[in-house]
Design a protein around this nucleic acid. Structure first.
Lengths: 215, 215
DNA sequence: GGTTCAAGGATTGTATCCAATCCTGAGTAG
DNA sequence: CTACTCAGGATTGGATACAATCCTTGAACC
């Protein structure tokens, strides 16, 4: 029996909340009224609160006793810190992963890069976000450091609120495609130093664009 | 995060559980039966589960649907990964913090180092663990990167289960004191490179000892 | 007009109760 | 003797009900 077979109300609500945050349906600063959300998802407040507590631990929402849960508002210093920590951790992941990459891994990465491009040209923002995440985490997971993957994932989650806005721009989507091509080239060459440089540039461009959005 | 002024049943239970884990009262692999714990803390199962969910998000306990919560068992690869991630993140913290350190910070660090030594000689393991954590996080917090502090804290928490065993040994306590002296010297000289080297050595010795314990 | 303060409703925190699932162990068949 | 089956209790997941706290609103007072 696998874990996924046990669908619990709390996990369903958690997934729904994640989606709502990622799509921008729930906007930063907004209060999450427990009764309304519970009714909307067709569950009681108990599993709803369970999901909210998980999101709080991840920093996606903030909690104030007797006042409630609110979607986290990312400040500019916050955003910059998230990307700085990503730089540190993803560099480590790349360093470890490159020597471990199998040909199958590289193949999978190339295919994901292609899927991103397709979604990008079609303007399918949701599909692009998903494929993009799969692309980057295929590389990160290749380092075979599960805790590292989890930490980086939580940092990605922290900026999910703004990701849909970022990919909404065709200019941004096009630049991302070019950067992914450079990243793939470094991966194919098994050159960790170059790869880390490309990843850093990739992130720098994103943080520059996002800085404008946050304000 | 909840204001300290408003103590909620869940937060009390959470603190108690943390203490019980840190002191080794709850041992790795052990099941946490909700009813018993709730009764022991004098609360219902609702706030207890709330605390358990927080600990699960932090990786201190694991959860299996319809089976319950268990104290996490740290595998050797896990332990090594935790310390490797700490090395990466704490090095970054040190790099950022050193130029920002005020004389007051250095003073506070020196005082904490002294407190650690006192507790070490007196064999007060609990006090030593607490002062040691305060010492290291005074340095880390000086980097003024709150998310970085949180990530590192979660990595420290992950090995809390074994910390009391580690500090139970007088040999270990004595070595730690010497290492802290070297760390303080590097801090006083505002030499980030030396400091990072000392911190790395400090951690390497700990992971070597802990590896033996895990097995 | 501005400030203080006290209801009352709105919202969250917690306890209690019921439902769903798991685990144990006795019994049975092979 | 071993493997399987299937109650019955033990334990967790979730819903409802109640208590504690907060927030708004409006009136009294300066």
């Amino acid at each position: 029996m696998s874990h996924a077979t046990h669908i619990t109300a709390g996990s369903v609500v958690l997934a729904e909340l994640r989606r709502a945050i990622a799509t921008g349906e729930l906007t930063p600063g907004q209060q999450l009224v427990q009764e309304s959300l519970a009714e909307r998802f067709g569950v009681s407040r108990v599993p709803l609160r369970e999901a909210l507590q998980v999101l709080e631990a991840e920093g996606q929402v903030v909690h104030q006793v007797h006042r409630g849960y609110f979607i986290t508002e990312l400040s500019l210093p916050d955003l910059i810190e998230v990307y700085r920590l990503r730089a540190v951790l993803e560099a480590e992941a790349a360093r470890v992963a490159v020597p471990l990459l199998t040909d199958d891994d590289v193949e999978a990465l190339a295919e994901l890069a292609a899927r991103i491009e397709d979604a990008s040209e079609a303007g399918e923002v949701g599909a692009m976000i998903e494929a993009n995440r799969a692309f980057h985490f295929t590389l990160i997971d290749a380092a075979a450091m599960p805790r590292l993957s989890r930490l980086v994932a939580s940092l990605w989650d922290a900026t999910d609120v703004y990701r849909s806005v970022y990919y909404g721009s065709a200019t941004n989507r096009e630049r991302v495609d070019h950067e992914h091509a450079s990243i793939m080239a470094a991966i194919r060459n098994r050159n960790a130093t170059t790869l880390i440089g490309e990843l850093d540039a990739h992130r720098e461009h994103a943080v520059a664009e996002l800085s404008a959005i946050v304000r």
